[in-house]
Design a protein around this nucleic acid. Sequence first.
DNA 1: TCATTTTACTTGCGTCCGCAACTATTACAC
DNA 2: GTGTAATAGTTGCGGACGCAAGTAAAATGA
Lengths: 165, 165
Amino acid sequence: MASETSMGSASDVHWLDDDEMATWLAMVEVNTAIQAAVEEDLAPHGLTNGDYGVLARLSASPGQRLRMCDLAATLHLSPSGLTRRLDGLVREGFVAREPSAEDRRVMLAVLTEVGYEKLRGVAPDHVATVRRAFIDHLSRTQLRNLGAALRAVQSGTVSGRDVAP
Amino acid sequence: MASETSMGSASDVHWLDDDEMATWLAMVEVNTAIQAAVEEDLAPHGLTNGDYGVLARLSASPGQRLRMCDLAATLHLSPSGLTRRLDGLVREGFVAREPSAEDRRVMLAVLTEVGYEKLRGVAPDHVATVRRAFIDHLSRTQLRNLGAALRAVQSGTVSGRDVAP
DNA sequence: TCATTTTACTTGCGTCCGCAACTATTACAC
DNA sequence: GTGTAATAGTTGCGGACGCAAGTAAAATGA
């Protein structure tokens, strides 16, 4: 959930200036909206956003399989959280558990044929939602600049200059 | 939770082009990171991100009070969710419940003196975290362009042109 | 080699929150 | 005015997930 983070206080002390505040609030709002849109789009398919993440990651991995710990890391999920999420997906037949041959501590999550078909059925809707809620509202230049800015934030560096269209 | 939304599939079908995919993934990643940073920053103060949102909203409202339904709407929270979250804040003395005089269906959430002091104690750390995790990595021009792009996404329109520094 | 530490996963428990159902109050319709 | 609908809030229930503890297996080190 993306909760609010308004910075106003009763004594009208603002700790961010207008540009900063406006951008920060917009960031929080947009995220909340996008997340809600994606969740809403996936719900009729009987999947959560988290479920989709598992299927997508597995489908993009060699052999359509991944160690639990690696999967948990990329999904920013705790070990127990992933165990439970996988329980659900296994129950529905989208994913199978398979013990690793090399390391007997490890369980591999494997995308099943059923899971792959599910993903193929859902992906078009999902992509359409991403476009409708996000990408379609940006020009190509803005898209690139936004990407550059976000990657700078991501890597903890200061970013380069924006390019006008 | 910000789950992954990688679009790759086993047959290497990509539904977003490289720019789109890169920006979308960066958006998801940055959001996850920011949310984790804020949560982590608030935890030692004994507050969740959601709790902070309630206190901040109330402090910025006339009379430091808000109807439950209005508060729920701005926080994108279900009625029951807000009831429970308020339960916790009331138990700690940060917020009080007060029946409305005009409409006897309505309960007002009121920021207490204790709650206000709590907020004042926490806000500097919170703002520092927002800067460290987000704002400091953007130039002033990027900040403005980013804000404009996000507001365009927010309002569902197509945005204008970016401005180079 | 064998004790210690680290890593991988699962289970018990508590918290947060959404949905559906319920009560109370107000607004609307005829 | 009275019956119907809409609105505000709370409660029961269940799902999702994090933390701490537990088990099993591998890595380290003396």
